[in-house]
Simulated assay, not measured.
Amino acid sequence: MQTQESKFGFTQFAETWNGRLAMLGFVIGLATELLTGQGILSQLGLM
């Protein structure tokens, strides 16, 4: 019998994808800041 690992909660699968998406978001934010010359707070109008 084969058991299926849950894909929700604090599982290895979820944590791996969370880390990958966090790295992707950081790189996109950094690239946007370099291209526009403004930080994220300035782009959102908070500074």
Score class of each variant (00 low, 15 high):
S6W: 11
S42K: 10
L24Q: 10
Q38E: 08
G45K: 05
W17E: 08
W17I: 11
Q38I: 03
G25D: 03
L46E: 08
R20Y: 15
E33A: 12
T16I: 11
F13D: 09
F8Y: 11
Q12I: 03
E5Q: 15
G45I: 06
L21S: 07
L21G: 00
G25P: 00
F10L: 02
L21N: 04
I40L: 15
E15Q: 15
G37Q: 04
S42R: 08
S42D: 09
L21F: 13
M47I: 05
F8M: 10
F8Q: 12
A31I: 14
A31L: 13
I40G: 03
G37A: 06
V27I: 11
F26P: 00
M23Q: 14
A14C: 06
L35Y: 12
E15H: 04
L41K: 03
A31Q: 03
I40K: 03
T11F: 10
Q12T: 04
L41Y: 04
L41V: 02
G45V: 06
L21I: 13
T3K: 14
K7R: 15
T32Y: 03
W17R: 05
A22E: 12
L21Q: 06
F10Q: 05
G25E: 04
F26L: 09
T32K: 11
L44N: 02
G37L: 07
Q43P: 00
G45D: 04
T11N: 07
A22C: 02
G39R: 11
G25Q: 05
I28K: 02
G25M: 04
F13K: 05
G45T: 02
Q4I: 08
T16G: 03
Q12L: 05
E15S: 10
F13Y: 15
S6R: 15
T32A: 12
G39H: 06
L30Y: 09
L41A: 11
N18C: 07
L35N: 10
Q43Y: 01
N18E: 15
T3S: 10
L46T: 01
L35Q: 11
Q2S: 06
Q43L: 15
L35R: 13
G25N: 08
F10P: 00
G37W: 05
L24R: 09
M1A: 13
S6Q: 15
G39K: 08
F10V: 00
E5W: 07
M1P: 11
G9Q: 11
V27D: 02
L35K: 12
L21Y: 10
A31W: 05
V27S: 09
Q43E: 07
T36A: 07
A31G: 06
I28N: 00
S42P: 01
F26V: 04
T16E: 11
W17N: 06
F13Q: 06
L46W: 14
L30M: 09
L46R: 10
S42I: 01
R20H: 15
S6Y: 10
M1C: 10
K7M: 12
L21H: 01
Q12F: 03
W17C: 01
L34A: 06
F26K: 10
G37T: 05
G37R: 08
F26I: 05
